[in-house]
């Protein structure tokens, strides 16, 4: 059962939790299901962490486990290619383009489940590598590799998407007589 403090933590965390659900799921409706299922599961847990950091990790882990369970049931588990090398992006993938937030989010939705998972935890939910490692039961170095690989995939996806908006890096000089 929730005590007052845990209820407060849950309420403080729920926006990020829903963001994580939206990042993991293909549509809002599924995300709402996952979000609600996770909250209900948390509320009825027999024991709960009694410090805010552990509680947050615990709550997100509940959601992630539910997500994994559903994917397993559907035979669509995410694939984590931890052995793959991280691509060097210094010479390509739009390195000379400014980043448009909308393009990033659109590209994010096209990433693999594994890439969305790790980027959601670190970038959307704000977990440290150590917290993410604790949640995923992997080494911190693995998180480091996954993040790097996921960002590389995101960058590549943005290049692939025609939705990338290349913003001019330099402003044009105002025309004579124009408002400066």
């Amino acid at each position: 059962m929730l005590d007052q403090m845990q209820q407060t933590w849950m309420l403080q965390t729920r926006r990020k939790l829903f963001g994580y659900a939206c990042a993991l799921c293909p549509d809002i409706s599924t995300a709402e299901d996952l979000y609600q299922d996770a909250l209900l599961r948390a509320m009825t847990a027999n024991s709960q962490p009694d410090d805010p950091i552990s509680y947050r990790v615990w709550l997100f882990r509940i959601m992630r486990n539910l997500w994994i369970d559903r994917l397993r049931a559907a035979g669509r588990l995410p694939v984590f290619e931890d052995a793959a090398a991280v691509e060097d992006l210094s010479n390509g993938h739009g390195a000379d383009q400014a980043v448009n937030a909308l393009a990033v989010r659109q590209a994010f939705q096209h990433l693999s489940k594994a890439h969305r998972d790790i980027l959601a935890l670190v970038d959307i939910c704000g977990f440290s590598y150590a917290e993410a490692a604790q949640m995923l039961d992997v080494a911190q170095g693995t998180i480091m590799s996954r993040v790097s690989r996921a960002r590389a995939a995101l960058s590549a996806q943005m290049q692939e998407d025609k939705t990338v908006v290349a913003l001019p890096l330099r402003r044009r000089a105002p025309k004579a007589g124009g408002r400066g």
């Binding site: 963001g19 939206c22 709402e32 609600q36 390195a95 400014a98 990033v104 970038d123 939910c125």
Partner: peptide, 25 residues
């Protein structure tokens, strides 16, 4: 490249804020 990574991270950081939070589970 670092600037670009920062921008990508910042763009995703606001991802949750744009999603309508279900007010009533």
């Amino acid at each position: 490249r670092v600037l670009r990574l920062h921008q990508m991270k910042a763009a995703l950081a606001g991802f949750a804020d744009t999603m309508p939070l279900p007010a009533i589970p």
